[in-house]
Structures are given as structure tokens and as C-alpha cells.
Amino acid sequence: MSEILTSSATKVIAFQLKDKEYAFPVQQVQSIEKLMHITRVPGTSPFIKGVINLRGVVTPIVDLRSRFQLPEEYNEQARIIITVSGDTEIGLIVDGANDVLDIPGSVIELQPEGVGGAEEDYIVGVAKLEKRLIILLDLEKVL
């Protein structure tokens, strides 16, 4: 993750979760899917929603709201971000994903104190972009 902080500009996929904006580097995102039927897998952690059929590949799905201990609720805008970590693909349910942003390294601040919430452990840094505050997440830790 450190290269994100040092490189001049990082391309990220930004998404919403409740009232905040988060982002993953574009390299870690394979695709963005609409919500589809999720098959529950019994006996797994509560934030694992189950598996979907992603073009013939059985892909596990993590609910980020539940991961960050936010109340679970989805609307039409909800999306599944398919991330790639090593050779495993995992989908993350978010409230909406519609932005690809270039974030200059200069505007990224390393994990400030007091962001609060359960997501604090997963944060790499925070980027201030005009009036927006975008939280950069560490995929490995989220999973």
C-alpha cells in the first residue's frame, strides 16, 4: 500500500457507504456489478453474505456495511465491487460506486486520529479532494 502514498497520483474507484466516501486503488478492482442473487453460506462470519455466480465463477461476497458495523440496508444504487487479492476474487457490497478519481499523493494524509468507527483499522489514509473527504481502504485488512 505504501506505493499509493508515494506515487504522484493514484487512480481509485470511489464508493459510498452510508454518508462517507471510500476508495480502493483501481488495480485491486476487477469490475462493478449490480446486486444479484446471493446464495447464503451457512456457518460463516456474519459479514460474509454468501456467494454469487460471477460469469461461471463462484465468488464470495462480503457486506461492507456489516463489516463496518453499520445497519444493513440496500437500495437500487447498491453495487458489488469485485476485488482481486492475489488470485482470489471477492465481492464487496457497497451503497453505490460511480467515480474513478485521480488522487494526487500530496493530498493524502496518513490515517488521522479520530475518524472513529469500526473501519478505523482498515484505513490506509484520507484524501481531501476539494470539498470531498475520501477514505482509502486496505483491501487485505478489510477481508
Binding site: 453460506v41 456457518g43 460463516t44 456467494v51 461461471g56 465463477v57 463462484v58 482470489t88 477481508l143
Partner: peptide, 19 residues
Amino acid sequence: LKSLGNYLSGVFAISGATI
């Protein structure tokens, strides 16, 4: 027969998935 993958390995009483 499809595997559930490494992320979900070791789920009790489930040997895999199918489409």
C-alpha cells in the same frame, strides 16, 4: 462441482458449490 475458494474454505458440511 465448483470449489468455494480459499476465502471460504472449511465451511462445515458444505463440500462445494454448483451453478
